[in-house]
Amino acid sequence: MTMFLANLLLAMVWAALTGVFSLRNMATGFVIAYLVLYAASPVMKPTLYFQRLRRLPVFALYFAWLVIVANVKVARTVLSPGMKLQPGIIAVPLSVEKDSLVVLLANLVTLTPGTLSMEISRDRRTLYVHALDASDPDAVRRDIKITLEQKIQELLS
């Protein structure tokens, strides 16, 4: 977090020095500041910041893609004349343990249409997900575990 703030601060310094406060120039400054910090990392405290930040854009793009695909799917369900719905509540066992990761996962599950996180068991081991298409509960479980849970763990490991 401190590294991120330092990076952001250096980006602002870059914008101030070049005198252009546009989003593009700030982004340029951010990339340059990232490289500068990365070059200086051998003399600083070890941090996971660099690896994480590198994985973030990939994950963001991947997630945006998931959201778009799933939204189109739901839109098709909504607009189809017969509306073949088979909704249901499915228990998904969790392997992430940290509370913050569980929250992140639950939010991502809700944002990918077709699934909605409803409830979590008291021991925080099971997430109850409401799915629009629950005809194959195991497929829904597999989907969440492979497309989201594994990616989150990779992102934050």
């Binding site: 959201v67 909704p87 944002l111 909605l116």
Partner: peptide, 18 residues
């Protein structure tokens, strides 16, 4: 069009967000 509370939230919370 959706039949119950739970499926309606699907439509409102996500497609709307997008």
């Amino acid at each position: 069009r959706f039949p119950d509370l739970y499926t309606r939230i699907h439509a409102a919370a996500k497609v709307g967000t997008m």
